[in-house]
Amino acid sequence: MSVVLPGECVPAQHVNLKLGPGLLQISDAQGENPIVSTRSGTLNHSANRSKWWIENNSRRYVPAPQESVIGVVMGRSGEGWRVDIGSAHNASLDALAFEGATKRNKPNLKVGSLLYARVSLAHKDMEPELECFDAQTHKAEGFGELKGGFVVSCSLQMSRFLLDPKHFLLPLLGSRFPLEVAVGVNGKVWVNTKEVRQTIAVIRCIEAVDSDGETMDDASVKKFLGKLEI
């Protein structure tokens, strides 16, 4: 693992090379195609050195295809909705991109509704597009409108940590009380529990563990949870 800055050459070579976030292959005049970094962070690769990516922390979300995000409906536009997912531009969501949606039967979304969706298209210079179903199976797969609960904003790194099954926070909270969580990699985490107090406890724990806040570790979160009234 090493730290790279934008523009550095990365020694990534493999027959079946896959580049992840922060890496770009460019072609120069000599006919070579070096891999360079486009952001600063730590360079990571998979065990067989076929997948390479850069890990860093930021607050501004840049959409990438196939990522799960949480967005807020900002308004209608033609046959769909405009959704704020925290990126530079609002994403568009087609009214037919839901499970079981037809021309006559469209989901009823209001301005201000929360959505859990997948980025289906994120080209440069274009508005990102979302979908709330799997395009192959036409099943919801957990996507759709989020009702009740609360949304926490956190750093992008924190939202990726929460998706990691090995991260301590969500199993720890889950052992105390039942909770429902939807993690969007755009730095938004939706939380729902039975009690308002429990939801507040989850919100405060996520904010406490986030590197933007206090960066608490396993033991101090346990202490912190003990002090909260749940």
Binding site: G148, F150, T199
Partner: peptide, 12 residues
Amino acid sequence: PPSPSIPEKEFT
């Protein structure tokens, strides 16, 4: 500024 989403509003 965008107004908070409906669940955020209701929960608060």
